[in-house]
Design a protein around this nucleic acid. Structure first.
Length: 213
DNA sequence: CAGTCGATTCACT
DNA sequence: GTGAATCGACTGA
């Protein structure tokens, strides 16, 4: 039996900790996306940590740019980026301001607004696929760059909040290398997921793109 | 200022 | 399992 999820927004101090502490602590929390058509809620089941400017796998590795500016900002805000010409992904900024760490939300279980999510993810065969993968998660929740920099610690009517939810005990958390990350940052066990959860995305090694003509 | 390629997904073989 | 889609940020000149 699961207790009723805690509806209190996580406060700034939750995010103002080392990213490797914050990342596993996000599993089981509730992400709320408030759209004009109604709310969509997601139970976070899989995340990856990106550990500041020293992390070769991170967008922050080569310093601050227009795209990654949110990661260098204060904790408890969203960093949304555009990738592969068609997808968005959502990070939660953590650590002190200027530290440029973030947690990528890779997968989750839609708990509220599944009808809205299915509409946006019409190719999904099963509900467990609605938010299985970072770009699918963003698509299901109607997240794009307009939400970059959003404060996650505010309640309604903020378009994006993270609630305390039901944190997962450490013995239900698995760890492994990050998905699709190349270079020097490939081997660190910075990916965390809820063991055996059906919404967790499959692991994929980094695949360098072939040269075109 | 042109070339390169990405924290991915999907269709197809 | 393999390759296409699709575009803008970043790189190096």
């Amino acid at each position: 039996m699961s207790a009723r999820p805690d509806r209190t927004p996580l406060d700034r101090s939750f995010y103002d900790r080392p990213v490797l502490t914050v990342a596993p602590d996000l599993l089981g929390r509730t992400l709320v996306r408030r759209t004009p058509d109604g709310p969509i809620e997601l139970r976070i089941t899989e995340v990856e940590a990106y550990a500041g400017e020293a992390d070769p796998g991170s967008h922050a590795y080569r310093g601050r740019t227009a795209r990654n500016a949110s990661m260098f900002g204060p904790p408890g805000h969203a960093y949304v980026y555009f990738i592969y010409g068609m997808w968005f992904s959502l990070n939660l900024v953590c650590g002190p301001e200027g530290h440029a760490s973030g947690v990528l939300l890779r997968a989750g279980e839609i708990t509220v607004g599944a009808d809205l999510a299915r509409k946006r993810r019409s190719s999904a065969r099963k509900d467990t696929e609605l938010a299985k993968g970072p770009a699918r998660l963003a698509t299901a929740l109607d997240i794009d760059r307009s939400l970059d920099g959003t404060d996650l610690c505010a309640g309604p009517p903020s378009p994006l909040s993270v609630l305390a939810g039901n944190p997962v005990p450490a013995d239900q958390v698995s760890t492994g290398p990050r998905t699709g990350v190349g270079g020097g940052g490939a081997h660190h066990p910075y990916r965390y997921w809820i063991t055996h959860d059906p919404t967790v995305s499959p692991y994929r090694a980094h695949t360098p793109r072939r040269r075109s003509t």
